[in-house]
Simulated scan of single mutants.
Amino acid sequence: MFDFSVLSQYLPRILSGAVLTIEIAVLSLVLSVLVGLVGAVMRLSKSAVLSGLATAYSTVVRGVPDLIWMLMVYYSAQIGLNALTEAMGIGSFEISPFFAGVFTLSFIFGAYFTETFRGAILAVPYGQIEAGYAYGFSAFAVLRRITFPLMMRYALPGVRNNWLVLTKATALVSIIGLDDMTRIAHQAGSSTHMPFLFNMVSALLFLAITFISLRVFAWLEKHYQRGVKQEESYE
């Protein structure tokens, strides 16, 4: 039998861990979107060097498990930095677990967003971009008023999927010592010998985040579909 009075004792800590999880996810999303936009532009660049670098980044990052990247950034990179700083006589350097978690997730999902935005940009009818230049728009105005809004219509499904995977990937930060809701729920389950109950609470919180996210993306898709003629179907 489950002792729900025990759950009430740990619930505030789990909820605080949920807030940390959301903070990590949102910050990682913002940074990975920025990385993805830069990567997509580089992938589509006429420069073989820029295109090659972006392609290599996207291929290598997506081909290595997320857990390995997390361990490499937090442990291996810290050892390398300490060896470098000690050789320079600066002293030891410690990477914050929060910084390591956000940086790693942004680095990983930036590769996925690179491919998402690249495909979306290629889907934009080039005639509309040419029309913007014909009206005298600057390159930035064309990007802001034509390319980006049209691109988002095609990119949103991929952005939504990447975000949903990213929210679940935040559980990886528990292995580097961050007290997110996954780590707190696991510790509570181990100490009370009720792992199923606390892991279920963690799972339900992730489901709540997913449900809210889907509602937000449904609104965004409706927003970016404004002005698009919907085909009517007749039975």
Rank of each mutant, 00 (worst) to 15 (best):
M194H: 03
I90F: 15
Q230H: 12
F4W: 14
F107Y: 15
R144W: 02
G110R: 06
F98T: 09
Y126T: 11
L214T: 10
F217P: 01
W69N: 05
V165D: 13
W163S: 00
K222P: 02
K168I: 04
E115P: 04
T21C: 09
A25T: 08
M151A: 06
G52C: 06
Q225R: 15
M181S: 03
V228H: 06
L29N: 02
F2W: 09
L7H: 05
I129C: 06
K229N: 11
S45Q: 05
P12H: 04
Y154G: 13
A18H: 02
R183A: 11
V41A: 14
G39Q: 00
R13G: 04
L84Y: 08
S138R: 11
V61Q: 11
F196W: 12
L31N: 00
L11I: 04
P157F: 08
H186F: 12
S92E: 10
L15V: 09
K168M: 09
L122A: 12
M194A: 14
R215S: 10
S45K: 03
P195A: 03
V49R: 13
L143T: 10
G136T: 04
Y154T: 14
S51R: 14
G80Y: 09
R118G: 00
D180A: 06
T116W: 00
N199K: 04
A185Q: 01
L178R: 01
D66Y: 08
I129D: 08
T85E: 10
Q230I: 06
F137D: 04
A131P: 05
Q187Y: 05
L150K: 05
V38T: 14
Y126G: 13
F196P: 05
L178C: 02
P65N: 07
Y74C: 08
G189Y: 13
A100G: 05
G63S: 15
S47K: 01
R144A: 08
E235P: 12
G119D: 08
L205D: 03
F109G: 10
M70R: 01
L34T: 07
S96T: 02
L207E: 09
A83W: 11
Y112P: 07
L53K: 00
E232G: 12
A54D: 06
Y154M: 11
K168N: 10
S76N: 12
I24Y: 10
P97A: 08
Y126H: 13
L11C: 01
V228F: 09
A131M: 09
G127A: 05
A40H: 03
F109H: 15
L11G: 06
R145G: 02
Y74F: 15
V41H: 10
V165E: 11
V124F: 09
V26T: 02
G39M: 03
W163D: 01
H186T: 12
F103W: 10
R226E: 09
V64I: 15
L207A: 13
L197E: 07
N82A: 10
Q225P: 00
N199C: 08
I121H: 04
S51I: 00
G177L: 05
I24E: 09
F148N: 07
F107R: 09
I95T: 05
P157T: 01
A139N: 07
A169T: 06
D3I: 01
Q187M: 08
A56W: 13
L27Q: 08
K229H: 10
A77T: 03
M200C: 12
A203K: 03
V201F: 05
P149N: 08
I212T: 11
T104F: 01
V73G: 00
Q230C: 02
E94C: 01
A139K: 15
